[in-house]
Design a protein around this nucleic acid. Structure first.
Lengths: 170, 170
DNA sequence: GTGCATGCAAAAACTTTGCAGATAT
DNA sequence: ATATCTGCAAAGTTTTTGCATGCAC
């Protein structure tokens, strides 16, 4: 199965937003930043710094760790990326395109991550926030549990498991 | 102002659950584990490893870092504690008594954390999980936003800010 | 007694930072 | 030109591990 990729125009749009942010801040567009951002935007799901580095190095082998950290920090600042610290291990990042409306359902057994969206919940959380006088800027909603297979149901499978070992990418 | 404390019987109950877990696993009850668990259960809200170590050392000064890490891992395993990695910084932990039904509303400006509970959302998330064949074991739901004061509304205040520096509890 | 637990210190894992040379504007 | 970037390596943080001794069972 082909790695999960976002449509190209999405990527272009996101790249544009990123470049605009850099300009606005008086920062520079560099080959490295382009490569990192593009690798990042081109893949759905979650990426660790390490994975992103590996991806970006396909296009720019001399790329260093620190640059990825620094670029991801920029992307986070301008809202095009978001940290997702699930369970243990490293911090994962997710691109803005994925953010809009995806919450997570995580299998504690297999570690696989599914995304879901539910209008009812979104509405209700807005309501809750309002009752406290809050304005919600972003949110995170994660359900940790067991998939059918992990619960020992024959034939049941941890959705997302079969196709790929640990992440929905290359 | 007195530190936020849980009722004593709650603590006793939690301690009992912890000891039962240790026994079931063929592990031992030690003074250190007791002190750590009790310090942990006795306080509502979020604690970092470091804070917990400091608390526990009041009762057992020779206590080491590693023991806190190891004990907190045990508590997490048996569901009596949960990791809460909010923004940046360190990992925070929260006791089971707090977990049941508290989700979080975090002010990005002041950093204050409010807790909320909404049955509608709970129900809906169960439903979502079921639709994927999942059984939810635990969840985390965090809304990040701005409190009235942060939005510049005169007279508005970041709930939880006034009374106490960091948590809306007791 | 036996085996798990502890404390310490060393090691590992993950991030951040400093700097000299390279580069975008 | 000039201020920002980059890569590397060093320094910081946070968490885990190894081991000899100590303690619970």
């Amino acid at each position: 199965m082909a790695p999960a990729e976002r449509e190209e125009n999405d990527v272009d749009g996101l790249m544009g937003q990123f470049r605009a942010y850099l300009t606005k801040k008086g920062l520079k567009s560099t080959r490295q930043r382009d490569v990192i951002a593009e690798s990042f935007f081109s893949h759905t799901g979650h990426l660790s710094i390490e994975e992103l580095l590996a991806l970006a190095r396909k296009d720019y082998p001399r790329l260093g760790y620190a640059t990825v950290y620094r670029t991801l920090k920029l992307l986070t600042e301008c809202g095009l990326a978001a940290e997702r610290r699930f369970g243990e291990g490293q911090t994962m990042y997710e691109a803005a395109g994925d953010l809009e409306h995806h919450d997570h359902l995580i299998c504690l057994e297999c570690g696989h991550v599914l995304e879901f969206h539910n209008e009812e919940i979104e509405r209700e959380q807005e309501r809750v926030a309002r009752s406290f006088g809050f304005t919600v800027i972003r949110h995170r909603h994660e359900l940790y549990g067991l998939c059918p297979r992990a619960r020992g149901i024959k034939g049941g499978s941890c959705p997302g498991e079969d196709a790929r070992p640990h992440r929905p990418l290359a």
